[in-house]
Design a protein around this nucleic acid. Structure first.
Lengths: 142, 142
DNA sequence: TCTTCGCTTAGAACCATTCTTATTTAGGAA
DNA sequence: TTCCTAAATAAGAATGGTTCTAAGCGAAGA
């Protein structure tokens, strides 16, 4: 599962004619299967021990490249850009207490962009939904 | 319309026990009826001519206070925080070409938070929807 | 009038992100 | 395998948005 996911990213890099550097492979690996929607800084902190000379620029360049080739998706939440390796249509639930962001699969059968035209003449390409509330863990703790 | 909107903000400030300083009134006035969802910087630029000594801190403090007392709403979009004076439940449409953010009223009769439970145990408080696509103006220009 | 406390100001500080430049390296060609 | 070159990395400076800090100001109450 995680392996095939990682392979998906590696394939995407190859197909785009981008070089498979150790740093890129490590970033792809770190992002793959990470459901916490990490920031660039968090990925940097996680990889720094393995690549002591790694630069933030490499993190940002790689994440930017992956985003452009649809290997991952950017989310603007909590004051920083977060990266989501899940590029299938889905929504997000954000806990107002702990800040955790979780993926929310679409209802089976739900067309991803099935909402009515919101504004006259506006051509909808996709819809992003954010559910805000309290996650099960925080609700239980309170 | 705009007058009563501005009055709403002034009332909210009063009720919260906050002082009605000239700066705060000017910020409330600038925000009221502004449908462009301005950033703090944009409001600063707009007010600087009138208050040559105004500080960014005052803008941020006031917008923060207004947000806390529900006089406006923060949106994280386009790399900066934007402020929306419309605090009734509504969605947003973002043009991928020009970046314009427009309010989208809920379908009449649509309950604001009527979606099914997205995750087991997650208590939904509200749902934010962002329609991404191309606005009528940009579609026509192309 | 005096005091107090909230507000504003100026600018430093902070943090995420982008840019610049020199150096290194992956991957194709010979 | 070796060589070559375009692409990628590293280091750190620069940028831009936002927050913090310290000092001063001013309105409201004693």
């Amino acid at each position: 599962m995680v392996l095939s996911e990682e392979h998906r990213l590696v394939d995407a890099l190859k197909r785009a004619g981008l070089k498979l550097t150790p740093q890129r492979l490590a970033i792809a690996e770190a992002l793959t299967g990470d459901e916490t929607h990490p920031t660039a800084q968090e990925l940097y902190a996680r990889l720094k021990p393995r690549f002591s000379s790694m630069s933030m620029a490499t993190i940002y360049n790689t994440l930017g490249a992956l985003t452009k080739i649809r290997g991952c998706r950017e989310l603007e939440m909590g004051g920083a850009t977060r990266f989501d390796p899940n590029v299938t249509p889905h929504d997000h639930a954000v806990c107002e207490r702990c800040g955790a962001i979780r993926d929310v699969e679409l209802e089976s059968g739900e067309a991803p962009d099935s909402e009515p035209c919101p504004l006259p003449g506006f051509q909808v390409e996709r819809i992003e939904r954010v559910y805000r509330g309290v996650c099960a863990q925080c609700a239980e703790a309170a």
